[in-house]
Nucleic acid binder design. Sequence first.
DNA 1: CAAAAAAACTGATATATATCAAAAAGAAAA
DNA 2: TTTTCTTTTTGATATATATCAGTTTTTTTG
Lengths: 236, 236
Amino acid sequence: MKNKRVDLACEQCTVRKFSRFAILQNDELNEMTYNKTCTAYKKGQVLFHEGTRPLGVFCLHGGKVKVYKTGYDGKDQIIQIAKNGDLLGYRAMISDEMYPVTAETLEDTTVCFIPKNDFIQTLDDSSELSRLLLKEACKDLGVMTESLTNLAQKPVRERLAVTLLMLKDTYGVDAVENGSVEINLTREDLANIVGTATETLIRLLHDYKEEGLIESKGRKIKVMDEKGLVKVANIY
Amino acid sequence: MKNKRVDLACEQCTVRKFSRFAILQNDELNEMTYNKTCTAYKKGQVLFHEGTRPLGVFCLHGGKVKVYKTGYDGKDQIIQIAKNGDLLGYRAMISDEMYPVTAETLEDTTVCFIPKNDFIQTLDDSSELSRLLLKEACKDLGVMTESLTNLAQKPVRERLAVTLLMLKDTYGVDAVENGSVEINLTREDLANIVGTATETLIRLLHDYKEEGLIESKGRKIKVMDEKGLVKVANIY
DNA sequence: CAAAAAAACTGATATATATCAAAAAGAAAA
DNA sequence: TTTTCTTTTTGATATATATCAGTTTTTTTG
């Protein structure tokens, strides 16, 4: 499969203001992106593979990407759903390790690639960028702490509610109707976020439906009773 | 309960070379630690509480500290066992949030406290320190990714093996006999690392014993058959 | 469009693990 | 030392969830 090259100028990039590069000066940005390449990925393609060495960072321009780790029995655990403006693949680069996760597009996605050296150079030059990344990493560590605790303590039924609320919060904005979560997530993907078996997830969605908490048609899930879901999630 | 003040000079601190402050110049170190206070904590005391605002960072000088998050049903999930030379409580400070976790001593521990402003000042001045912390945060995110996946996918029996191997690797060094893990962890604590019920953990330890994988007396657990444990852990 | 493949769903069954309850052992305190 | 409290252990039971197997539906592809 050959991917189309695309021409995207950072200067007039529409997602830049949402991205971590919003804080960069124009000259810093130009320097960093001098060698960048932008590529149109089709759905289901892999940006980088778990266990491989980072060669650069990926900046998403439209489309969604699932970031997951594969367990020893071949089951995937989804760690993050990355979206518009998100930067991927820089952490392993900074910590100088192999990628601990795989990144795969959930839909057709345009992705800019910045080679390692250019990114590192900019990071070295811009204490603002490195400070921002440090801050974000610390924040994410807090978030992961919570995920870990939920996973260890909450039953699946509660975790699914947490997940749906999170998805609605994070991705509900660009959904057609308000309150609906429409990402190209298969039931299996959803199960791999929650950390459960696909069949269990399907049954629980069915239950939620019967209880009037959600409605669903195909992959579109609409939250009908947010308060009820919060109650099921057993948070606060 | 009143804690004793202790006088510890960073310049001749024996754990400094293991700590993140090893990279600081002497003048930077002096500046940062000018207002530091060192305190002798007794076992079971809390350094900081989940949900409170960070006021400074804690540097451990001997002793072990458990870092945990409390779930909504009151059960704790232990995220980390901090030891000699470890720095605690800086992440929430950097991300400008409340503490997502509680830190509590597992044994009598001497702890140096550096007020927020001094630490932040040093961080701003030392790009080396901030780079180091960024690198560590990125590394820890990778580690947490793995923990999360294990928690979601591995059965308790495997997770316990993983935990024992990890404890042996990380804390086995300062144990009296080789290969033995001796930290002041109650069975409940151990269960709260693995993410299971105390009774289940006790039964599994019993099984391991019968299988000749470990020996235990009181809180001292000795790994007898590391290869066997690795097999049970189902890694690699 | 038809054919093939993937995903979604339903049902039956097994089991790992949690929960509850109570006894025994050990540690701390008076 | 005796008492009290905490921790550890054992047993019985319940149940949430995984697993397996098969069908239906949807999506993809040639």
